[in-house]
């Protein structure tokens, strides 16, 4: 039966689904800058001339990426659950009555898992780009008397810009597709509903309610938004890049 756009209309009328979009956008606006800043800082530190034990730390920072998202969420889930988690216990012992799985906090508890997982990965991409910076530039800077900070600020950062753009776009797409973390934490929390993220909403439509058509419409809408945001972001930084060159 030809349904036209009615499934799309239905999906967009569902405030649970649209609220999920709002939630991941808020998540992205906060978590992506924090994570990229963190990854950049780590990459610069490991690339600094004075860095020691580089191989060890690079591996250590990258290691969480090797843990599958579901497993990571289960691990962190144990650290969030009151009564079991040493973190919660410590917080309570110093008088901080925190509930990591509560209504206000759970989104940021998820952000913490994602940051823990992907900072190392992004760091590695940035380090790869840093390795590609020709040594003569550093040499010239040193001769000119530039400090380590000035080298980072004026040589390294501008030159790893493409990698920064790349990691940001990947993170943007990843954020919109958030699924495993809320799915795993849902049974533990009283604050995650079935449409917490767009992907979770589509999943539940398909496999709980047996509404594959709505689920498909939701998935297409999600892909559209991801597309618009990624290309929008690329355009935005592309424009700025050109302005920078001409100015």
């Amino acid at each position: 039966m030809w349904a036209g756009l009615s499934n799309y209309a239905h999906a967009l009328e569902d405030d649970r689904f649209t609220a999920g979009f709002g939630r991941v956008l808020l998540f992205g606006a906060v978590q992506i800058p924090v994570m990229i800043a963190f990854a950049t800082a780590l990459a610069l530190l490991l690339d600094a001339a004075s860095a020691r034990w580089v191989g060890f730390f690079r591996t250590a920072f990258f290691l969480p990426y090797g843990v599958p998202g579901v497993i990571a969420s289960i691990l962190w889930g144990f650290l969030y659950v009151p009564g079991i988690s040493p973190l919660v216990e410590m917080a309570h012992s110093v008088g901080w009555n925190v509930d990591f799985l509560g209504r206000g906090a759970v989104l940021w508890s998820i952000a913490n898992i994602v940051t823990w997982q992907f900072t190392g990965y992004n760091m590695l991409v940035l380090i790869a780009q840093l390795k590609a910076v020709p040594g003569e530039l550093y040499e010239a800077a040193r001769i000119d008397g530039a400090s380590a900070w000035q080298v980072a600020r004026h040589i390294k950062l501008p030159l790893i810009r493409p990698a920064l753009v790349l990691t940001t776009v990947f993170s943007l797409i990843g954020t919109l597709q958030l699924f495993a973390e809320p799915k795993v934490l849902k049974p533990l929390s009283n604050s995650i509903d079935s449409g917490y993220t767009p992907n979770l909403a589509a999943y539940n439509e398909a496999f709980t309610s047996n509404n594959q058509h709505i689920a498909a419409a939701e998935a297409v809408l999600l892909a559209l938004v991801a597309c618009v945001l990624s290309f929008g972001f690329l355009r935005l930084v592309g424009q700025r890049g050109k302005d920078g060159e001409s100015g």
């Binding site: 659950v81 009564g83 079991i84 049974p187 533990l188 929390s189």
Partner: peptide, 16 residues
């Protein structure tokens, strides 16, 4: 309470 039942935190409460 309003915690989800039959999950880690709940089992802990039942145990203690």
């Amino acid at each position: 309470k309003t915690i989800p039942d039959r999950q880690n935190a709940w089992y802990k409460d039942v145990q203690t």
